[in-house]
């Protein structure tokens, strides 16, 4: 028993344990498994992240600052923010509408619709860009017609926005649907019985109940929208200072062997992803009930 007490105070890894239980492993095995798992995380996740920041500051602070304040970089940042804002807004409106229809009503073909909403996740980003080129490009189905009217979508900002909307399409909807399904319709019915109209019911009752899930979806949607590379690469034409988003700017700098500058811009995106993860973890920890359970990406 003395030995047991010892482990309680000396081992930082295994939890305090009494007699070896039938449903857990020996402490040595726990230590070995945990170590392997942590090594894997360190090599595959932490090292790449560290590499981004180390490489970014290799040329010193001054070089770092000039890389991210140089005009092309600023244009890229502005474009990324604009595109993400539009894409997130569109998918937010869509997500709320789709969740209302799917979660609050029973109708035929509902599961098919839910599957179709998830479809963009199973499409390669490159293909997501390609489909718009085929539709709106100079040789596409609608391209010539739009061209005559002076509307350019491919190799222009509308194309980037469309491709971004496509790849981030399901994010908000898939966070809201399971949660709203779980919440049922009793509170909405109560509001209606108290005289509220549809809009009041939605604003005063439904929305407050899903606000954290909404924020969660928007957060993930935004991270992907700002970071999307493949789909945007295909459709943007990569016109420097015009249709270059931040990830595309990173690529161009990298291919020009301006490694430090590339990593400097990349570090901004990495920072964004860290903030996203932090807020996401906070939401999951603080508002676990407010975001849907049993989520899988």
């Amino acid at each position: 028993m003395a030995v047991e007490t010892m482990t309680l105070f000396t081992s930082p890894v295994s939890p305090p344990r009494r007699l070896r239980s039938a449903t857990s492993e020996a402490p040595e095995i726990k230590v070995v498994l945990t170590t392997i798992a942590l090594l894997f995380v360190a090599i595959f996740l932490l090292l790449p992240l560290a590499a981004v920041f180390v490489e970014a500051f290799r040329g010193g602070i001054a070089a770092y600052l000039s890389a991210i304040t140089e005009p092309d970089a600023l244009t890229a940042i502005r474009l990324t923010l604009t595109v993400a804002a539009i894409a997130v807004f569109c998918n937010l409106v869509f997500g709320v509408a789709a969740a209302w229809a799917i979660a609050k009503f029973e109708f035929k073909g509902k599961s098919l619709l839910t599957t179709l909403i998830d479809l963009p996740f199973s499409v390669s980003p490159v293909i997501s860009g390609l489909v718009y080129v085929l539709l709106f490009g100079a040789q596409g189905y609608l391209g010539p017609w739009l061209g005559e009217r002076g509307v350019q979508i491919v190799f222009a900002i509308p194309g980037i926005v469309l491709a971004t909307i496509f790849v981030t399409f399901p994010f908000v909807a898939r966070e809201l649907i399971p949660l709203m399904q779980e919440q049922g319709t009793a509170e909405e019915e109560a509001a209606l019985s108290l005289g509220a109209n549809g809009w009041q019911t939605f604003v005063f009752v439904t929305l407050p109940n899903v606000k954290w899930a909404l924020l969660y979806g928007v957060l993930l949607c935004n991270a992907r929208a700002m970071g999307e590379f493949g789909a945007v690469a295909v459709i943007s034409g990569k016109i420097r200072g015009v249709t270059n988003t931040m990830p595309l700017h990173v690529e161009i700098l990298y291919n020009e062997y301006a490694f430090s500058a590339a990593f400097a811009v990349a570090s901004l995106l990495a920072l964004l992803s860290l903030v996203t993860l932090a807020v996401k973890t906070f939401l999951e920890w603080r508002f676990a009930d407010g975001i849907a359970v049993g989520r899988s990406h």
Binding site: A186, E187, E189, A190, A191, S193, G195, F204, V205, P208, N209
Partner: peptide, 14 residues
């Protein structure tokens, strides 16, 4: 204009 009391009350949690 009916007063309806729901089985599980359906109080607005927030």
């Amino acid at each position: 204009n009916v007063g309806f009391v729901f089985q599980h009350y359906a109080l607005f949690k927030h």
